[in-house]
Design a protein around this nucleic acid. Sequence first.
DNA 1: ATAGTCACG
DNA 2: ACGTACGTGACTATA
Length: 612
Amino acid sequence: MAARDTAHPIALDTETTDLNPFKAELVGMGFCWGPGPADLAYLPIGHHPPMAADLLSAAPEAPPQLPLAAVVSALAPWLTSPDHPKSLQNAKYDRLILLRHGLALGGVVMDTLLADYLRDANAKHGLDAMAERNFGFTPTSFSDLVAKGANFASVPIEVAALYCGMDVHLTWKLTQLLGRQLQDLGEALTPLLREVELPLEPVLAAMEATGIRIDIAYLQELSAELLATLTALEAQAKEAAGSDFNLASPKQLGELLFDTLGLDRKKSRKTKTGWSTDAAVLEKLEADHPVVPLVLEHRTLSKLKSTYVDALPALVEPETGRVHTDFNQAVTATGRLSSSNPNLQNIPIRTVFSRRIRKAFLPQEGWHLISADYSQIELRILTHLSGEAVLVNAYQQGDDVHALTARLLLEKENITPDERRLGKTINFGVIYGMGAQRFARETGVSQAQAKEFLSKYKQRYPKVFAFLELQERLALSQGYVETILGRRRPFPFDPNGLGRLRGKDPLAIDLEVARRGGMEAQQLRAAANAPIQGSSADIIKVAMVQLHHRLESTGLAARLLLQVHDELVLEAAPEALDAVVTLTRETMENAVTLSVPLVVETGVGPNWMEAK
DNA sequence: ATAGTCACG
DNA sequence: ACGTACGTGACTATA
């Protein structure tokens, strides 16, 4: 059990009563320090006593349980020590459990979940899937161990020890294996794990544990107002339609519009189950029948009511009075985080009404909310990665790049706001591989005009297109693309299809031929986009790690609360506010050094709406 | 469970 | 001739 041996950390696993770390009670802990059957231990802590019926047949003495307080105080020095290396599968969960018992887990040098995510973002990273894949072994599943409705505390200690022992044993074995695998994949992934993903995990745990305050009473008022509006809209829609139908059923709505009312089917398209009635379709039909605008309005408002206004209050933890999202660090293909239960990365903002929902997100009493977001970070990254001199210069001079693009495309000096919007649409569109059709639809110009703009864009910014095309070629020839920190997104093309291009000289690949299939074309756009979206994720992750530590070391009264891809949300005490805003901006802007400056815009307010 | 839809960057 | 803008998560209907 040598300390400081980061190559051979001790695997650790906690067993609890609940998947939700804010509800879970500690039931036991497992340890594994070597490959053998004797290199394992299980500490029972919170198992239920055996049932009376079991006691009659059971051994006279039930296995001893260790009192929680005794375990916590005895293990605290080891659990919190940065000098005793540990490895866990999804350390954030265990960390949150231990945090509730006052323990700050230290010395996590490996997280098998995060390592496997860096190895292959597309793979499944559950312990069961990894055991199957690497060792051809299927561990007992949790659901086979614990009856429905019961929890781990009801599992007998001897059984729990075997189950937990297997989990920590697998974690130990995977620790060794994944450490080697990441090294074999090149120079970048081990530092990315050690310097970004592993240090980010406790930052996310802290953000989740803090949570964000929600104004429940205000949301309930909003809910009542929405209910009244929705009820009225529903009655009006049925009146206009001349029939009773479920406004929430796309199937019934499609039948009403295209069968009963005979509206123009050419404005819709076929789905697997009938006619599409999505917002784009309904907008085309808006003037054709009075029911359509009513349905559109109803759709928007009922979405907001069910997904946010009614859902959020139910997710407030009674213990803390705040909502604690789950930031998932190992789900997206590109390296971004995702957020769930609730998803706080898709809180409405775009419409006037939806902005009212943001007013429900509050700082701690007496504090301020801060929002800090990267300005045009993806376009800056594309500029940096492509080295397109016109754009590099523009960003270095602090010019308005959307206006610049509009001037270049329209070949005139003075640009109207509408024309600038055209530049913005095309600047962002190229990041996603937008075609002329979509560009025309977004901006209202003709398809021919859109085609001309795109080819002009290509002439003016040739390096942008060379870069994007190179990513497609790399996806085909090497099977993956990379971000600035070396994060990979694999593209496992079928060897009988585009996979046959593996190993070829990337510049010799005929992209037009490769792009012919629908699915393949989509994959190639994703390949061009991944280094941009993924590098943005790299940068904000570095900023979060640095900012969290700087807030701690300076002792400023402020906490990171949320990350929304290019935005950080914090709360700060009034006396710390100015210092925190400055520290946040400077940390985000200097997280990495590119050929173009990174610019962060900040706002402060009494709620999330007013902080933006 | 899957499909359709829609909220966000 | 078609469909073509990347990445997510949640809700409702429907099977």
